[in-house]
Design a protein around this nucleic acid. Structure first.
Ligand SMILES: [Mn+2]
Ligand SMILES: [Mn+2]
Ligand SMILES: [Mn+2]
Ligand SMILES: [Mn+2]
Lengths: 216, 216
DNA sequence: TAAATTTGTTAGATTAATCTAACTTTTTAA
DNA sequence: TTAAAAAGTTAGATTAATCTAACAAATTTA
């Protein structure tokens, strides 16, 4: 009943709702790589179906129905990613693009079976929380490495950039979820940091990289 | 590059090409449950892309390019069905509908991994041959039970009806690929037959059922 | 073989998803 | 506080996939 396009809008809406800024037509257009008038018309469509609240020129909000629907799609995406990695042996850098397609498959049986095979997992290969069948998210706390202190040791629990190039770079450093990251030195001028990975590999992370690594 | 709709037309075209009758607009429309004018316009589109040969009012033919493409989609469909059954533990009666969706996923990596995990299988859960990555089909011989003789024993190697209701019925008889079917009596009046299944279960098969069971 | 039936095509409309161009509202900044 | 810039909307076009109605060709039947 929902088209693939509508599902992708809901995912984008949900993602945008997780930041402080208001959800605007501009941000949706940027997120999806389409033009603003296209967004305006789809936003009217989604409002008609009660997935969002929308008034001309005002900020857009997901309704409870919309949020729920978005979380169910995220559930399918993240379960798929973990399945591709843990059952099918693909790397964390190659699962996202396939999951972007499989998340639109309509079959409770298929995804419930994946969930069972994986033992009802709580986190995907990038450390993202997997909503349960009711759309409830597991509790989790983690913060970006960019806010960490020198001299302390952290554990990698998630990545915020799913790009294959970024994750492949982490692979070359032997960095996976669970790896330790010790912050050796903090450079104020560009906010880069010298780090020791898994007690073995020494390198420098730019601020951008640090923003994309979640640790506890 | 190919839309989902185009892929479904190619599959239908391939299926129709496997009978003796010519491929006509009418038959395509019937197969896909759409109207003839819709078919005419898509047929022109596919001809423009060299997947078929088409001249007004003449029979339609798949080109080598079209046939190849169709076989690659069938490969994805059948690999998926076997994966759903053998890896994910679904029943042969529930895999088809899910495979109809997953066959359109664009990822060589995904399907090659499925192929590997299954050990490069040659037949799907319904006994249909799986084309290899070059579109080549395995050799296989099998004939419908409807052409069999009384007093002889056969082995079930395939089913021609993928409907969940039909396959669920076979489940209740304990009939799976590899089961033995002994033809006890042939009834001329309605071409039904009395059969003994796996040396245990005795029942009667209508002619229609017999047409849908492939044996050797 | 001519009429009736079936099959196929054309023309034109519809819906979803997109675009560009032009206009309007809101926000920012001089 | 008004002018400029940014953001948003409307109008109208486009493409893919579908439909119905009307017409045309091919096939079957009388
Ligand atoms: Mn992802
Ligand atoms: Mn992920
Ligand atoms: Mn099938
Ligand atoms: Mn099959």
């Amino acid at each position: 009943m929902m088209t693939l396009t509508e599902e992708n809008y809901l995912k984008a809406l949900h993602r945008l709702s997780q930041t402080e800024e208001a959800i605007t037509v501009k941000r949706i257009a940027l997120q999806l790589g389409i033009k603003m008038p296209t967004v305006t018309s789809m936003v009217k469509n989604l409002a008609g179906k009660k997935f969002i609240r929308y008034e001309k020129y005002k900020a857009i909000q997901l309704t409870e129905k919309g949020r729920r629907q978005a979380l169910l799609i995220l559930r399918k995406h993240r379960l798929t990613e973990l399945f591709l990695k843990d059952v099918m042996g693909l790397g964390w850098e190659e699962v996202h693009d396939i999951a972007e397609q499989i998340e639109h498959i309509q079959s409770d049986r298929f995804f419930n079976r994946i969930d069972e095979m994986l033992g009802h997992p709580k986190f995907d290969p990038h450390g993202e929380p997997i909503p349960d069948a009711d759309g409830k998210l597991p509790f989790f706390k983690a913060f970006p490495l960019s806010g960490c202190e020198a001299g302390k040791k952290y554990k990698l629990t998630g990545v915020l950039d799913h790009d294959a190039s970024f994750l492949t770079y982490l692979n070359t450093l032997g960095l996976t979820l669970g790896s330790t990251i010790e912050v050796m030195t903090l450079h104020g001028f560009d906010r880069s940091m010298e780090v020791l990975l898994n007690g073995k590999v020494r390198t420098v992370f730019s601020f951008t990289i640090c923003q994309h690594l979640l640790v506890i």
